[in-house]
Amino acid sequence: MRFTKDHEWVAVEGDIATVGITAYAAEQLGDVVFVEVPDLGKTVKQGDGLAVVESVKAASDVYAPVSGEVVEANTALGDAPETVNAVPETGGWFARIKLSVPAEVEALMDRDAYEAFLSTL
């Protein structure tokens, strides 16, 4: 699993990257009440808005940590946004992206680097 400074995580299997927000981000956000997942087929570049996650008092853009095409979205979050709080780094994933620039993944932080980054906040 790789991480961004904007608190997204990426897990890659083959050329498919699963994307979500980190446990830290979910904690900071508070109770998630709504998630807007991307449409299938949407192409995103690294850093583009991918999804929107809302708590009662905040709406936050989730940025695409990698470039590619959205091949699957976690529509189950529509009825159960609390999943993002409960299991942010597993069942609370937002979308699966077919990588167009696989090298982007390697440049992201690994868990140790991300933990170290969190300790500076």
């Binding site: 709504f34 809302e54 708590s55 009662v56 008092k57 905040a58 709406a59």
Partner: peptide, 14 residues
């Protein structure tokens, strides 16, 4: 008051 994330005091320019 609910679904406030649509509104200016949270969403600002969005």
């Amino acid at each position: 008051l609910t679904l406030s994330t649509r509104e200016q005091h949270i969403r600002r320019d969005k």
